[in-house]
Design a protein around this nucleic acid. Structure first.
Lengths: 217, 217
DNA sequence: TAGATTGTTAATCGATTAACAATC
DNA sequence: TAGATTGTTAATCGATTAACAATC
């Protein structure tokens, strides 16, 4: 392969957003869209959008814009949405249910190959047509479905043990929603999403904003 | 006030993590901790940790480390965890339930002043002792409890309308978990967390990793 | 040709990191 | 004094933005 130089992570995140916005436009019969229009729909400025797209090559038409279909195709390919990617999800509490039910996952090339929980009452249930299995089934499912991504949606206490089992089973990327810092071998990627931390960041800005207002008054 | 210069957003996010790690250490009877030890527990390098803490002043002891209690105090104050901050949460589906039940929220200075949903069957229920109310109660609750932060955990279709109602009620910061780009007045802050995008970013790295391996083999 | 919009360059900004003097 | 560790500097890296030449 001759292309595919490093795409910045911030760009990858935005590409996913552009793709969704384009999806929303799908029914509109719009054949072409300018960087200005797409950027404002995605909530970024047009320079950033063009810079982001430039990592995928140059396939717009000056004076006109981008063909919506070509744009979708390019972004999908770059993100690997076209390739069917199997994930396992461990922890079928409220958050796990929210994730499993999240329609978006399937549309984006993710396939939930298995749901796992340690609670015997959950095991055997079907959620969005996927069976909830005991953790003992994990290695077999990971092997059979060539799963490389695991999602952890357990309580904090269980997270490290679950992570160890995922890694032992052969998973090489972990998305961690539990409020715990995970230790993994260096060939394994962990991405952490902490709902409380997100709220804290927002709150911090809010605090500065109201402090700022006080000064102005 | 004489201090409080700009703390980078990336630093704010990490400070929240340090605070949690310190909380986990609480029972251990450890009086003091070095930047090296805390950094490795938090999964960052020690230079970054010290740089982060330096925004809060200099209160460590060279050759020794930081007093755990002082450290907690400083970080809490900087993040505003000490001040009691009221939030409203709209959308009591699986994700909303997960957020409402998330013990972490209360511990970090957030108080759920109200849960809101449009589904009549949900209204009147209590979740973690908080009553689920109809959207028509929103303005009164926001006013009465001086709420400045709203959390949206509705389906994408409802998100913009809910956001408009939050803003109209007086909310000035919005944490958006719905997979939709929200339009707000410029005095309002929006922070977006997209669970599918997080997975996509991870998947992208995974893709490069396996591509890289192929090249090596 | 005139108008519009891309693709890219260069300037700027912010965040990370290594290194080390200060100091307990 | 010797050893350890902080706090800060300066170098580096990466991401954002404005501006504009290229070109439809």
């Amino acid at each position: 392969m001759s292309e595919g130089r490093a795409i910045p992570e911030a760009t990858v995140a935005r590409l996913a957003v552009y793709l969704r916005v384009l999806g929303g436009l799908a029914g509109s019969g719009l054949g072409t869209i300018s960087s200005e229009a797409l950027a404002s729909a995605a909530g970024v400025n047009s320079a950033k959008l063009r810079k982001d797209l430039s990592y995928l090559g140059s396939f717009g038409t000056r004076g006109v814009g981008y063909e919506v279909e070509v744009l979708q195709e390019r972004i999908s390919t770059a993100l690997g949405v076209s390739e069917h990617r199997a994930v396992v999800l461990v922890g079928v509490g409220n958050l796990g249910l929210a994730l499993a039910g999240y329609g978006g996952f399937r549309n984006r090339g993710f396939d939930i190959a298995g749901l796992f929980d340690s609670d015997a009452r959950r095991i055997g249930q079907r959620i969005a047509e996927v069976l909830v299995r005991p953790m003992s089934d994990l290695p077999a499912v990971v092997r059979r479905e060539s799963v490389s991504i695991g999602v952890i949606a357990t309580p904090a206490e269980a997270a490290q043990a679950v992570c160890d089992q995922l890694v032992a089973a052969g998973v090489t990327s972990v998305l961690n929603f539990a409020p715990a810092v995970l230790v993994v071998p260096e060939n394994v990627d962990v991405r952490k999403v902490d709902l409380a931390v997100e709220l804290q960041i927002l709150s911090f800005h809010e605090q500065r904003k109201s402090a700022g207002l006080k000064v102005v008054l």
